[in-house]
């Protein structure tokens, strides 16, 4: 047997041996949770997610509430939020940003919510997914425009994927990330957003799913918040519809 299969077998055997003696659930504050754990780790009568749902931060019950909570959270996270009635208005808005902020080259990907904006930008563009991907070309871009899978009101997050948001690098390498977010894609909670993605990509999940919660940040120097550590310094969310 190879080292790999031996080591794996040994570790799994150790795990099985170790688990022969059960460990009681942690001391919990709520009786309901204790009850849930009573049947053992494999037989939870209430799932952790169901226990948590009413207690995690609120994600809103109606579409209007969700949009309101999302917007408030994004602003708190120092992301920009802009509203546009439709994609044409979004295109105008983003073209203005490009002009005002002096973007020389903007990266984008082929998507029904992104393409109408990209073709109306008044600057040079680079499409990441129409031929061989070029890291250097993307690195030289000032901004990247992507679609998203969903947004999460509860945490103020945008969910992007490698499958339908222009791969892995487009939403992280350029200095500015512009996200086109249709209002209908605003989910309440993280779990809801993941459900959406699972339903959409039932046959196979994209190789990357990323919750983006505000512009890149660090507190590594004296625990002082600085935006734009390695990822985008600016996160611009254009809420459409």
């Amino acid at each position: 047997m190879s080292q790999a299969s031996t080591a794996g077998a040994v570790i799994l055997a150790r795990i099985r041996e170790a688990l022969r003696v059960p460990a009681p659930p942690p001391q919990m504050r709520s009786h309901a949770t204790e009850q849930a754990a009573a049947a053992g780790p494999g037989g939870l009568t209430i799932l952790p997610a169901d226990v948590a749902r009413p207690w995690l931060p609120d994600g809103g019950d109606t579409p209007e509430e969700r949009v309101a909570i999302l917007t408030e959270n994004l602003r708190r996270l120092k992301a920009e939020v802009h509203r546009a009635a439709d994609l044409a208005a979004a295109a105008d808005l983003v073209a203005t940003f490009a002009a005002d902020r002096g973007w020389r080259r903007v990266a984008w990907h082929g998507h029904e919510t992104v393409e109408p904006l990209a073709i109306r930008l008044g600057c040079d563009t680079y499409r990441v997914d129409d031929r061989q991907f070029d890291k250097d070309a993307l690195e030289a871009c000032d901004a990247g425009i992507t679609a998203c899978e969903a947004a999460v009101a509860q945490t103020g997050s945008i969910l992007v994927s490698s499958g339908s948001c222009g791969g892995r690098a487009l939403s992280i390498l350029p200095h500015v990330h512009v996200v086109i977010l249709p209002a209908v894609a605003v989910a309440g909670t993280l779990a809801d957003a993941l459900d959406l993605v699972r339903a959409r990509h039932a046959s196979r999940l994209p190789s990357m799913l990323s919750f983006i919660t505000g512009p890149s940040r660090t507190g590594d120097i004296e625990r002082i918040l600085v935006l734009g550590a390695h990822g985008p310094r600016e996160l611009i969310v254009v809420l459409v519809g």
């Binding site: 991907f133 890291k135 499958g163 994209p206 990357m208 919660t213």
Partner: peptide, 16 residues
Amino acid sequence: CYNTLYAGPRQAGECD
């Protein structure tokens, strides 16, 4: 800020 789930390497149809 970033919570990312990876399911294997680049898939067919993904650009990078």
